[in-house]
Design a protein around this nucleic acid. Sequence first.
DNA 1: TTCTGTTGTAATTTCAACTATCACAACAGT
DNA 2: ACTGTTGTGATAGTTGAAATTACAACAGAA
Lengths: 146, 146
Amino acid sequence: MQISSRFTIAVHVLIAIETFKNERKVTSELLASSANVNPTVIRRLLQQLKKAGIVTVKRGSGGADTGRPLEEITLLDVYNAVEPVENGQLFHFHEEPNELCPVGRNIHKIMDHRLEEIQNAMEDKMRRITIADVMADANKLIGEEI
Amino acid sequence: MQISSRFTIAVHVLIAIETFKNERKVTSELLASSANVNPTVIRRLLQQLKKAGIVTVKRGSGGADTGRPLEEITLLDVYNAVEPVENGQLFHFHEEPNELCPVGRNIHKIMDHRLEEIQNAMEDKMRRITIADVMADANKLIGEEI
DNA sequence: TTCTGTTGTAATTTCAACTATCACAACAGT
DNA sequence: ACTGTTGTGATAGTTGAAATTACAACAGAA
């Protein structure tokens, strides 16, 4: 099972907003065209990002913008905004291990802290990368094109 | 999207094999009962673990065992054995970003190494935890019960 | 050899999540 | 009022997970 593409689309969207905001109105249509997904998918994504304070979206007149400085938006923020996993658990645990078995009734005590440790390693790394970092790479690459 | 429960079931299975191997024949039926999943699920899982050299399975007479010393089985080994994601990519990237858009045609160059970095952080952590480590906790917890 | 218990695997089913898509009311600015 | 856009419900197709049934292949014991 892979992490859904909502995450990479969300980062794509943020980069695109920042890239185009001074040139034109950034509509869901524009973003959808850039990522090559359906505009409705973008709108729903923007709603999730908006709830997390990562973007602002103008109803009616239209247009999306970033909601706070890019240095203050980490990849973890984006990930948490668009990956609504219950309890925030990365690993899906088999639901009902057998309580009558010594292994079954202890497996959570045995494994949970290990899983947390692994998930934390991943989240720590995500926390250390900001959209500003990613945007810097984007500017460089797009700049070199011209 | 969470990582499928095959991973936690696989670890559960290895702990159970090690816990019961000296007392009785460890069949898919026994393992299925401990994890409370279908025996066929266990058999398929054992096949995946077997291909990775993590377990041995006796056809006919029946019974599973670990395939090498527990110190030499890392959680990453188990994870890779049972999570057959194409290319081993943790993140699902949106398939066809728009090549006509400066963001779309650079998004992979912008993001891929970041995604790798994150995945590596997770995998490094998994590589540092062995089944022997987990088994030590299991023995302790199960021992304390008595 | 036949019997028994088990594995290996195909086929089928149920279910949940992803993603695409259509439709349209709510809304803002002209 | 008109136009373009957002916000959101509803629906559909696709994919993968996990359960389940069924049974041939197999190993060892009787």
